[in-house]
Design a protein around this nucleic acid. Structure first.
Lengths: 126, 126
DNA sequence: TACCGTTATATACAACAAAACATAACGAAA
DNA sequence: TTTCGTTATGTTTTGTTGTATATAACGGTA
């Protein structure tokens, strides 16, 4: 007898982001990047640490800085060690703001996801 | 005096979707497509009505059908009018399920978005 | 049988995002 | 002045997603 296909329970998933004047201001990837910059004091090291191209990382940082009243990352080129980057207080607040909303969102997905599929209770052996 | 840049209030936005065995099962676009199919009794007419290529629409329908225990759309080729497509009861349930979650999500974004930016109350003329 | 508009399917093309690559600018220290 | 690793920026390549185009299959009906 051919076994009927089974289907994994449908799962609710999603993304959130914070929009600014030119589109995305903060999202999951951007916030992780900010945290890596805080850790490495360098955009290039941060990018490397998450297998992201430096170019892309730089673009993201530039985009965030443009869209924020106060810069989230301050950079300096040249000098000892070649220069570097550091997270500002505003950057710190941005991280906190996003993770807080993100956490609430994950909770929403979890609880709302349970109400998704009105499944007939299986009568069989239980 | 150079005017300081102003920044629109950061806005919380997002997407949700329902995942199945092969990735997305239901999302905003897919559900709209299902509704158009219900309306037009035709995949091609539905696709046209939302400026979507027939190929893409067909792929989406096939993906949904593959990932659902019971098909969400039934198609027939040939015959009077060339054939057509109709939404099944399962498809109807899928639409309801998604919009219900979507509505709750919009509510979440709205209420949670208000708590985003802890703004200093402006002291000036008010 | 011929016709018709749809489903079904393959292949080529376009648009966009991200990666990859290349190079210049920077500035403190040796 | 040279060195060094970073920031800064331009150009090319790749990968993915959807569109465009073309063709066959389908099956009622005239």
């Amino acid at each position: 007898m051919p076994r009927a296909r089974t289907f994994s329970e449908p799962r609710l998933r999603g993304r959130i982001w914070i929009e600014g004047p030119e589109g995305t201001f903060l999202g999951y990837g951007r916030v992780v990047l900010l945290e890596r910059i805080r850790e490495h004091h360098s955009i290039s090291a941060a990018a490397r640490s998450m297998s992201m191209s430096y170019r892309h990382a730089w673009d993201l940082v530039a985009s965030m800085n443009r869209q924020s009243a106060a810069p989230v990352v301050e950079m300096s080129a040249g000098g000892r060690g070649g220069g570097g980057a550091r997270l500002t207080a505003g950057g710190e607040r941005a991280i906190t703001m996003f993770w807080s909303a993100y956490k609430d969102f994950q909770r929403f997905l979890e609880t709302r996801g349970k109400k998704l599929a009105p499944r007939r209770p299986s009568r069989g052996k239980s």
